[in-house]
Nucleic acid binder design. Structure first.
Lengths: 115, 115
DNA sequence: CGCTCATTCAACCGCACGGTTGAACGAGGA
DNA sequence: TCCTCGTTCAACCGTGCGGTTGAATGAGCG
């Protein structure tokens, strides 16, 4: 089985799929409804939904003969968590650098940069 | 020219590249340093860095004959902005739904669901 | 039951991607 | 200057992906 984050990022790497997510954020929709604005076959859209589903971004239920697609909001937490980790790490780095530079200011500047 | 977000998501869809980002969050590194832990050629790693660079995730400078790779923290904002937009939208939907259900409770339940 | 409509499965196609190897390039050090 | 080391360029290869068309599936209605 493949890594979850990989699937999520790969799923969102396609503009059509991102647009679907955008529309599904507003309201659930069926495959045909989703396919309407795009200039591709319904089968292609069905495949896109499958990719989103495998990534856990979306869930397919069943209402009569329709299969409405529902956006699964939890993955956003997964993405945010991944991003925030590194954002914080980088910020911490800059904070340390700032501190170092500030200290440098007070000392006679021993000419040792980028050590 | 291609969409920025597409490039960013595509770049992060590869586990090796995500790992590189993780390591670069801690400290800048050269191509050879980055390549060391992985069981692939240096050229392959150089290609990965190019993809990250094209996505604006990373910047290559030049220090003597080395070309240290530096993580560009701003893209995280781009990603966060994209995610938060839809998270909020979905939350608003649920809030409306909750309100609707709450109202439903107080009225005689006219049996009109999923309208 | 039999038709119909929404959706998915199957097979195929072109292309981009991640990988390789071999050669070129460019900045220092001897 | 010449050699070396770090890195990138170029060409190639197999696989996966987004697209297509055509057929199958499955629920509801007449």
């Amino acid at each position: 089985m493949e890594d979850r984050l990989t699937k999520v990022f790969a799923a969102l790497a396609d503009p059509t799929r991102r647009d679907m997510v955008a529309r599904l954020a507003a309201a659930d929709a069926t495959v045909n409804e989703l396919a309407e604005p795009y200039d591709v076959s319904v089968q292609a859209v069905s495949k896109h939904i499958r990719v989103l589903e495998d990534a856990g971004l979306v869930r397919r239920s069943r209402v009569a003969q329709r299969r409405p697609v529902h956006l699964e909001a939890e993955v956003f937490d997964l993405l945010t968590a991944w991003i925030e980790r590194y954002r914080r790490q980088v910020e911490a780095r800059y904070a340390r650098l700032d501190a170092l530079l500030a200290e440098e200011m007070t000392t006679p500047a021993t000419d040792e940069e980028t050590a």
